[in-house]
Design a protein around this nucleic acid. Structure first.
Lengths: 195, 195
DNA sequence: TTTGTAAAAGAACGAACGTTCATTTATATT
DNA sequence: AATATAAATGAACGTTCGTTCTTTTACAAA
């Protein structure tokens, strides 16, 4: 018996994401991926059922990792301000450490491919739901629809990250996203969410 | 001399956007577009230099329209709260009236194709820049980096819209985006931005 | 009504696509 | 050391891609 070469598997994953981030979904092809990963096209079909399966598995893995990182050191009993800040910090860490993974993730989320995806991330969502309920009960947080909470609590974060990831800054060249500028923005948002 | 048929031109534009919103950039092709618009593939090349040109022109048109709609009734001398609210309302109107255009726009903005695009929208940006400067001078607004302002002032809006546009609501089914729920969210954000 | 000209069409080009095939290669087990 | 088995390959399949060719069609100007 011959065993799968994990180096090959990793090369396939990394090159696929790099290619999609650089050239988009229509610049991506199985044959180009095979060439860039130094692998036969047929080999891709040992690891994945087909192209759609490859993209979905890739997305699900990245999404799961991102969710895991976001919840490091977190638990739903934390105070609202502390819990949310931990998540912002964790997410920024992921973005800075794995910019290609994150860009791939965002591109996938904003494409129609997202509808053919499988995972629901229900554990993560339950965790967050409980966190918000607790915070409202403790009186740390305004009462509001979950969609409004999610939008206000994370909308600014993702917008900031998008500014950071596009090399051409539209306004000035002096803005740098780090834990300090992140905290500045976080404080603004938290103030708004308090009762 | 024969003149261009504007019905055909419109059919090409609309079908292109619909196809991309439904199937993504890799589900889109010139031959499929020609068929769906009841047009010969060759005809597409009378209107557009090539596929890339078609997509870029489409994006630039939508972006320009979106910017124009956003600024209806707006001027940079307005009070910060009133000016921003007008823009939120205008943008919501655009999203509800042209959901396909907006989805196409968002998908394009989150793809690498955006880097090959031409338009800079500098008039719109200048307008907004002046608006923020005025508001800070009048003391209606905290001082902050432009990137932070943009993220806070619009991040929640776009997140809300994204919730609205995905048919499968993740949390409950009872949330509806309209001028009332929009205003609720807006008030939260404005409170955060005040000094 | 004729004429000039650009719009529009349909068929076709080579290239690239996703996928599969028969075959070879490497390695865990015997 | 021999064997079994799955990994890995390169060539090839039919299909679809973006684009261009030649020809036909419609309409403004004459």
């Amino acid at each position: 018996m011959r065993t799968k070469n994990e180096n090959k598997a990793a090369a396939i994953r990394e090159n696929a994401m790099k290619m999609i981030v650089a050239e988009g979904f229509d610049g991506f092809s199985m044959q180009k991926l095979a060439k860039s990963a130094n692998v036969s096209p047929a080999t891709l079909y040992i690891y994945y059922k087909n192209k759609e399966d490859l993209l979905n598995q890739l997305f699900n893995e990245v999404q799961q990792t991102f969710a895991d990182v976001a919840l490091e050191g977190f638990n739903p009993q934390l105070s609202f301000e502390e819990g949310l800040w931990i998540q912002w910090k964790n997410r920024l860490k992921f973005v800075l450490e794995y910019p290609v993974h994150f860009s791939f993730y965002e591109q996938f989320r904003n494409s129609p491919l997202i509808n053919s995806s499988g995972i629901h991330l229900s554990s993560f969502k339950e965790n967050m739901k409980q966190f918000v309920i607790n915070a409202i009960q403790k009186g740390e947080l305004k009462m509001m629809a979950p969609e409004i909470f999610w939008s206000v609590a994370y909308g600014s974060f993702y917008s900031l990250v998008k500014f950071h990831l596009q090399e051409k800054t539209m306004m000035g060249n002096d803005f740098k996203l780090n834990e300090v500028t992140l905290k500045t923005t976080f404080d603004i948002i938290v103030k708004a969410l308090k009762p």
